[in-house]
């Protein structure tokens, strides 16, 4: 039951994050919205994992492990995006 609830919440988060990415113009807010969207997708996947509970585990460990990997990769991408924003700002300051 809570799997469905949080799955629906994840779906809503994807919509919210996408909306923020499209209507906000400050780049940092776009990066933030992108992470919000990513969190929603992970939760949707996590709800699927929860439904696969069995064999004594509270959830299917395979999607859970992939989500874990995904969070770290999303963070790496975010740091690169922020570094690009800061470098662009520094370039504009100089010119």
């Amino acid at each position: 039951m809570s799997a469905t609830l949080f799955g629906l919440m994840g779906a809503a988060l994807v919509g919210i994050g996408l909306f923020g990415m499209l209507v906000r113009t400050q780049v940092l807010l776009r990066i933030l919205s992108f992470n919000l969207l990513g969190g929603g997708i992970f939760i949707v996947f996590g709800a699927v994992a929860r439904r696969g509970a069995g064999a004594g585990f509270g959830g299917d460990p395979v999607p859970q492990a992939i989500i874990l990997t995904g969070i770290v990769v999303a963070f790496a991408a975010t740091t690169l995006a922020v570094a690009l924003v800061l470098r662009l700002a520094a370039n504009q300051d100089r010119s």
Partner: peptide, 19 residues
């Protein structure tokens, strides 16, 4: 969001699992 939500509600029963 609604499409994703519909997918969540229409997931197959019993859920596939590698557990």
């Amino acid at each position: 969001a609604a499409a994703l939500g519909a997918v969540i509600l229409l997931l197959p029963e019993p859920a596939p699992s590698l557990a």
